[in-house]
Amino acid sequence: MGQTGNMENILDSTVGRWRRELRGTFSNNSPTVPQWELDLEKGDDGGYFGPGSAAWAVHGSMTTLVAGIQSLLIQALHPGALAGVHDHSNYRADPLGRLAGTIRWIFTVSYGDTAAARAASEKVLRIHEYIRGSYTTNAGAERPYTANDPDLLRWVHLAFTQAFLGTHQAYGSSIPGGADAYVADWAVAGALMRVEHPPTTVAELKAQLAAFLPELRHDERVAETIAFIKDPPLPRSQQAGYKVLFSAAVASLPPDYRELLRLAAPSLGPVPLPVTVPTKAVLGVVRWSLGSPGPSEAAARARRMRLGVEAAPSKRG
C-alpha cells in the first residue's frame, strides 16, 4: 500500500506540474486564470457571438493550437508583415508574451461583450501605430509600412481566417452553418480591425488570398522564422506534442503556401505519414488537461445568463 500510495503521489505531482506548465504556456506563465478572462463575465450585452455560432465552435476547439502555428507560417510569407515582426517584436526573447497577447485579443472578441471586443481591437490598433519601417518588394522597390496599412491588416486577417478554418476542417468537428458561417463570423473581427470588406464566404476568402500571391516570397528571414516556429523554447514536457502539432499545421497547409514555405508534408519517402490520429490524440490530452469549457467561454456564458440572453442549464435529477 505504501509503495502504491507513493507512486500515486508521484503521478499526481507529475500530472499537476505538466498541467501548470501547459496553462502557463498560454497565459504567459500566469499561476492562475488571468484576470482578463474572468472579467469577460462583466458587460452589458451578449457579445458578437454565442453558443451555436461558428466562431465559438472553432475557437472553443483545441484545433486552435494547430491553427496558431499555421497562421504564423502563412503570415511570414508576406515581407511587409514579417518586417513588422522582425523589426519590432521580441518574440524570440518573450514568445509566450506575444502568444498570450494574441490569445487575449482572440478570446475577448469571441467571448466578450461588444464593448470589450471593440476596446481590445482598438488597443491592438494603437500598438500598431508604433510598428513602422520599410521592406523590399518582390519587384525590388523599397516600400514604407506601418502595421495599420490596409493591405497588411487584410493579409493578417486572411491568414488567420484561412488557418483557423482549414485546421478545424482537418482535425475538428463540424462547424454550425458550415465553413461560410465561420468566415462570415470572423469578418466581424476583421471589421473591428478596420479591414475593409473582409470576406464573408470561403469563395471570397480564397479570391482575396489569391490576390496576395505575387507579393509573397521565401527568403532568409522566412527561413529563420520557420526554424523558430518549428522549435520554440517550450518546456520539455510539451516538446513531443508540439512536434505533432507542427506536423499537423504543415500537413493541412494549402499546397501553394506549403511550397512557398519550402515545407513538405510528413512522409516516409513517397508514402505520406498519417497525422490526423496523433494530432487528435495530442489535442485530446490538452483538452483533458485544460478542461472544457475554457475560462473565457465559462465567463461569457455566465454573463449571458445574467443578462437573460442565455438560459441556465437545466438540472437533471
Rank of each mutant, 00 (worst) to 15 (best):
E37P: 04
E129G: 15
S134V: 08
V58R: 02
W155C: 03
G47V: 02
T63V: 06
F246V: 13
E142S: 11
L165H: 09
Q162N: 15
G2R: 10
D113H: 02
L11D: 09
Y257P: 11
N6L: 11
Y48G: 00
P293N: 15
W186F: 01
E259A: 11
P199W: 01
W155N: 04
R306K: 00
A300W: 13
A311F: 00
G190M: 10
E41C: 04
P233Y: 13
N90Y: 04
N29V: 00
R92Y: 03
T136E: 09
D151V: 08
R104Q: 12
H218Y: 07
A117D: 02
P150D: 04
G16P: 10
S27F: 06
R19Y: 06
G133R: 10
V85I: 07
T137E: 14
L263H: 15
I229T: 09
D219Y: 02
D12M: 03
H86P: 10
N138I: 15
T14R: 15
S289I: 05
L125R: 13
S27R: 01
D44T: 05
E21P: 00
R316L: 12
Q208C: 11
L273N: 08
V15P: 07
P293I: 11
P266C: 14
P295G: 11
L99S: 03
Q239R: 14
D231S: 10
E129V: 09
G112T: 00
K315S: 13
D185A: 03
R194L: 09
G84N: 02
I131Q: 04
D149I: 01
P176I: 00
H128E: 12
M7A: 10
R19C: 02
P51R: 01
E215T: 08
P254W: 13
T63R: 12
R20W: 05
E37L: 09
L216N: 15
S13P: 03
A93Y: 15
L245G: 10
G190L: 07
A55L: 01
A147L: 06
L153T: 14
R306M: 04
A170Y: 15
H88T: 09
T64I: 06
V183Y: 13
T63Q: 08
A302M: 02
L152K: 00
Y242C: 11
R236Q: 09
T64E: 05
L125I: 13
E41G: 05
Q162E: 07
D45K: 04
Y130A: 12
M7S: 11
G101R: 11
R92Q: 06
A181G: 01
A54C: 07
L153N: 13
D113N: 03
D44A: 06
E215Q: 06
N28K: 04
P232W: 14
R306Q: 03
D231Q: 08
A248D: 09
